[in-house]
Amino acid sequence: MTAPTAERTTRRSGVPRKRRDDTRLALLFIFPATIGLVAFYFWPLVRGIWLSFTSWDLLSAAEFVGLQNYERMLVDPIFWNAVQVTLYYVVVNISVQTAAALLIALLMQRLAQSTMVRSLILAPYLVSNVVAALVFLWILDFQLGIGNQVLEWLGLGRVGFFTTEEWAIPTIALINVWRHMGYTALLIFAGLQAIPGNLYEAAKVDGASETRTFFGITLPLLRPILGLVLIISVIGSFQVFDTVSVTTDGGPVNASRVLQVYIYQNAFAQFDFGYAAALSVALLIILMIVTFFQYRITRAGQTDLN
């Protein structure tokens, strides 16, 4: 940062009476944003952690209970089930989504760079999760859904996508793949554009096959972007709520009761805010661990270009 000094000298000679330092104006300008930052980001962070050590139903005063919520969590079978269900969701969602997005990004780069194609592919990302969930609730309806009609034509038999335990999570995961794959593809596409074209030229001159070029050039050079896209989508994926809430609400039984749904139900159906807060802390810790390992494994911070 050499600019400030340079500017200071210019101003001292050019406009002598102007204040060199804009502190007062700056404080005025960041005042509203700072209210938002403190009241709705930092304060809730502190308060959420505090709440997790209390027992509170909103009616009486919050009561400090130490680690009681955490002890309860460790022996709560629904919590452990929720962790499993969430992980299962994340694995299905992320693997299919990333593979599809990578394929779409490569195709866009090689064949269809038009804004038209890119816009259409992004369209699902612009409708809400609720809209996406309702449309697929209809398409995959057991009796009338076109999806099930097609399955029957193909001789595969109807599937209770939202009503059977084994299908609920994969179905919800794939709905969210539909909504997010275009957006993810565009992020990866942006990463592909950053790979210098002359590397491909060189590979072509050397007679490398397309597969070889992909594994030898594209994938290694895409790794930092792909790593970060993965971290970002995994964080988003862990926080799945809307789709589950609208379609199955956690059922059948507990088959799709992901962590966020369980947190919501504890807070707003059981009015057990302390326990809900403890569950949020657990989700935060899981997210931090997963992100840490992902960062290490994908070496997302480093690039092999240079």
């Binding site: 709705f40 809730p44 962070l45 959420g48 947190i263 807070a267 949020s280 935060l284």
Partner: peptide, 11 residues
């Protein structure tokens, strides 16, 4: 993460 701020913000 969003989830972490939602409950306290509701309060």
């Amino acid at each position: 993460p969003l989830i972490f701020t939602l409950l306290p913000n509701f309060l």
